[in-house]
Amino acid sequence: MLEVENVVTRYGVIEALKGVSIRVERGEIVAIIGANGAGKSTLLMTICGQPRAASGRIRFEGREITDLPTYDIVRLGIVQAPEGRRIFPRMTVYENLLMGAVPTGGRYLEEDLERVFALFPRLKERLHQRGGTLSGGEQQMLCIGRALMARPKLLLLDEPSLGIAPILVRQIFEAIVAINRERGLSILLVEQNAYQALKIAHRGYVLASGRVVREGTGRQLLADPEVRAAYLEGGQ
């Protein structure tokens, strides 16, 4: 469904991605793991057209999206829950969720809200609280909930476990698996928490200095001695 082919992304003279190719099939959870600065977030942002790929091609459902403006990419069904959550702090939880429904024009509002509340009951309790007063974990739930309100076909998650209490990390990963199983939603997940990510992923890629250095199923990567040495032991 998503094919990224030989994508190079530059920030000025620095090449953050040096020809990355990945793909995501319908209904898959694909994890991208790697150290800080490996280019994981850049890859997600490039898929959204922010920044643009300097060369290479990105196709979604057979259509080339490399040069589309971000808002059109979102309307095609690629929605990102960005790194650092980026919820709207002065707006209430409800208003935040409404912002997510912009691409659908609010047509399925009631139904989609119910689905988000079923997934994250905590959000319903906090409905009229300001986004900025939520805990980190709740904000992450709101961030994912907001992205789901857009009815994505492919959900991009950037570091959903960053800065969140371990107990909430587990809840959030459970929710990610649930979204994928129940709705068959394809998910591209970027994580530093490699163990958690590979455990739930169908397939994974290891990124290092802007290149894919390993790929395989989640289980293969978890068992790979080099991956273990570099990203798993020490962490877990």
Binding site: Q50, Y71, V74, V79, P82, R86, I87, F88, R146, A147
Partner: peptide
């Protein structure tokens, strides 16, 4: 209002 709060988030939401 959302744009005032976070432009990047707005882009990611298709605005």
């Amino acid at each position: 209002e959302a744009l005032r709060e976070d432009e990047i988030a707005c882009k990611a939401l298709g605005i």
